[in-house]
Design a protein around this nucleic acid. Structure first.
Lengths: 148, 148
DNA sequence: TAGTCTGCCGCAGAATATGCGGCCTAGGTG
DNA sequence: CACCTAGGCCGCATATTCTGCGGCAGACTA
């Protein structure tokens, strides 16, 4: 937060969210700046921690994951280490948020079939009480919008 | 799904999930294949729809979003178009899943402050009954693991 | 054995990125 | 007002990377 983002920064971020693998040259064209200026801004945004990494979107179905589920989990505070341990050794847990309200944790899980899902939720049920909802479809999956 | 993924494909996917902006040359070194073979596999994975895009991770705090929330929403079926309309015009909704169970939709929202959050949830409340949980922290945010 | 297919390597030319010097402008100072 | 400085941009020369081939080796078939 050392300096506010200007319009060029925002355009750059949007361009990268759209396709993070495009060349610096293309990015430069897209934000109407020269190559050097574009690179300087990119490096600065990384340096300042605004850009934290570049990832690939994968189609889970192509990897054999036919199921996705949202799991809510209620845990007695003392078991936090156990929660952490399950999270660490279960790569099918792709997301876990600690939240206010009834359920202490909201997780998102991918699974190859019902057996797989059952195994994961059973493991989770050992550290808390669990509610599982299957995902029919993903309506929205957007990057954080760079407005301010 | 025309062909199963072999070990090199999986390594390539992992490498790209780790840093999608690295050069083909680096990727090739990492998966122990030549440049051309690496490129051919990358193009094939894109072609087959396994790799669906390349995105940038952004720190929401750096963009001024101090709050994140999980919102569950229960809707009467007939309002589906209205739901879609809200999703389309609210960029702060970064994720929306349609699920089984009590709540028809689970959404994830970013907001700059409580007023902002309030405005978004109010909008959502016009199409269904809404439960909002604030996010304390994100414990896990992983790519889908390329095992099968 | 010969034919064909698949997947890999390596190469040469084209495209991109890197590192630096220099220019311009805004803001501060005597 | 003239001068100075700092920040941000451009453009260039060199280094690195990508692209589009051709060719080779192993597996499978007839």
């Amino acid at each position: 937060m050392t300096a506010p983002l200007d319009a060029s920064d925002r355009r750059l971020i949007e361009a990268l969210q759209d396709d993070s693998r495009q060349s610096l040259t293309d990015l430069a064209a897209r934000i109407h700046l020269g190559l050097s200026a574009t690179r300087a801004r990119l490096l600065a945004l990384e340096e300042r921690g605004v850009l934290t990494g570049y990832r690939t979107e994968v189609d889970p179905a192509a990897l054999g994951y036919t199921l996705r589920a949202v799991v809510r989990m209620k845990v007695h505070g003392a078991l936090y280490d156990k929660v952490k341990s399950v999270l660490d050794r279960t790569p099918q847990i792709v997301r876990c948020l600690r939240v206010t309200g009834e359920s202490c944790y909201v997780l998102e899980v991918v699974a190859v079939d019902m057996n797989d899902l059952s195994a994961i939720t059973s493991e989770l049920a050992r550290v808390g009480s669990v509610t599982t909802d299957l995902v029919y479809e993903t309506l929205v999956d957007r990057p954080v919008p760079p407005r301010l």
